[in-house]
Simulated assay, not measured.
Amino acid sequence: MFKSSVAVTIGGAVLASFLQQAWWIRGLEGAALGFTTFVTFPMIYTWAKRTADPVHLTIGCSPAVMPTKLPPDGFTVVMLYPGGGGSMLGYGEPGEATGWAPNSMAYRCEVRNLSGKPLPAIAITLPIKYRNGDGSEIEPAKQFGKIRIVAQRLDAASDKPFVFFVFNPGGYGATVEKIEADYHEPDPSNPIIEIKSNLLHPIEFGSAATRMLDPASEFVK
């Protein structure tokens, strides 16, 4: 009974204080409350909708060789280099020579869409840690980097992945332990992206990766 009386007393005091304020102050407070409600509720609804049915992707990479003949859909190559790096697209007539020497060692990566529906352009980002070819640390300004490519469309069928290659043209060591993915053009109405499987084995260039990147290794067969 005492607690109820205290609550009623406090509530009455707050109400009395509000009524005693100038009309324009009460108006501003009411407008602020209305604006907060107007902004907050739609944000909560949008967040709940995005997280209720997330898009699931898997990302995997394995040692491979660069294609010497152009695949039907062309191909994307991520070029690793400390302090720089970038990407390039290979396109033209399917089957024509790509210009890559036989047994040019690389990694072949696949991004698969498990959502069962086509997805708009997806930005794929590779965070890279570089080192010297002998394994020693490289200068701090070149130690870390990020390279971003775009999958213009992810097919609804998981057996039709977006494929790209990762190539290291220099003698530097490089490691990629995970790959990030998000929408190329952010849209609050799109469901969030969850990566269910991300690089079971890291991308590794340098002395530690010599056996895996040997053309005779079982990893590239």
Score class of each variant (00 low, 15 high):
residue 177 E to I: 08
residue 145 G to C: 05
residue 181 A to I: 04
residue 189 S to Q: 14
residue 199 L to F: 05
residue 180 E to Q: 12
residue 138 I to Y: 02
residue 194 E to F: 13
residue 150 V to G: 01
residue 174 A to G: 03
residue 178 K to F: 13
residue 147 I to V: 14
residue 159 D to F: 15
residue 150 V to P: 00
residue 123 A to Q: 11
residue 200 L to G: 14
residue 177 E to P: 01
residue 173 G to A: 14
residue 169 P to L: 06
residue 159 D to V: 14
residue 165 F to C: 03
residue 155 D to Y: 03
residue 150 V to S: 04
residue 158 S to V: 11
residue 175 T to W: 05
residue 192 I to Y: 03
residue 147 I to E: 01
residue 184 H to P: 02
residue 146 K to H: 11
residue 150 V to C: 04
residue 188 P to G: 03
residue 170 G to H: 08
residue 150 V to K: 02
residue 162 F to S: 01
residue 141 A to P: 01
residue 191 P to D: 08
residue 173 G to N: 03
residue 132 N to I: 04
residue 171 G to F: 11
residue 145 G to R: 01
residue 133 G to T: 05
residue 153 R to V: 09
residue 188 P to I: 12
residue 167 F to Q: 04
residue 190 N to A: 13
residue 198 N to K: 04
residue 184 H to K: 09
residue 128 I to T: 08
residue 163 V to D: 05
residue 194 E to R: 14
residue 143 Q to S: 09
residue 169 P to V: 07
residue 194 E to L: 15
residue 185 E to K: 12
residue 151 A to G: 08
residue 175 T to G: 03
residue 143 Q to A: 14
residue 126 L to K: 02
residue 191 P to V: 08
residue 134 D to G: 08
residue 176 V to M: 07
residue 134 D to E: 12
residue 132 N to V: 07
residue 193 I to H: 04
residue 193 I to Y: 03
residue 157 A to Y: 11
residue 181 A to N: 05
residue 173 G to D: 02
residue 164 F to L: 05
residue 170 G to I: 08
residue 182 D to W: 10
residue 191 P to N: 10
residue 198 N to V: 07
residue 151 A to R: 01
residue 186 P to D: 12
residue 190 N to F: 15
residue 164 F to P: 00
residue 149 I to T: 04
residue 197 S to A: 15
residue 123 A to K: 10
residue 163 V to P: 04
residue 179 I to L: 04
residue 128 I to P: 00
residue 169 P to K: 08
residue 175 T to Y: 05
residue 185 E to S: 14
residue 186 P to C: 09
residue 161 P to L: 04
residue 159 D to E: 14
residue 158 S to R: 07
residue 123 A to W: 00
residue 178 K to D: 12
residue 187 D to M: 09
residue 174 A to Y: 00
residue 172 Y to K: 06
residue 181 A to H: 03
residue 154 L to Y: 02
residue 126 L to Y: 15
residue 129 K to M: 14
residue 138 I to S: 00
residue 163 V to R: 11
residue 174 A to D: 02
residue 195 I to R: 06
residue 183 Y to I: 06
residue 125 T to A: 13
residue 176 V to D: 00
residue 192 I to M: 10
residue 181 A to M: 06
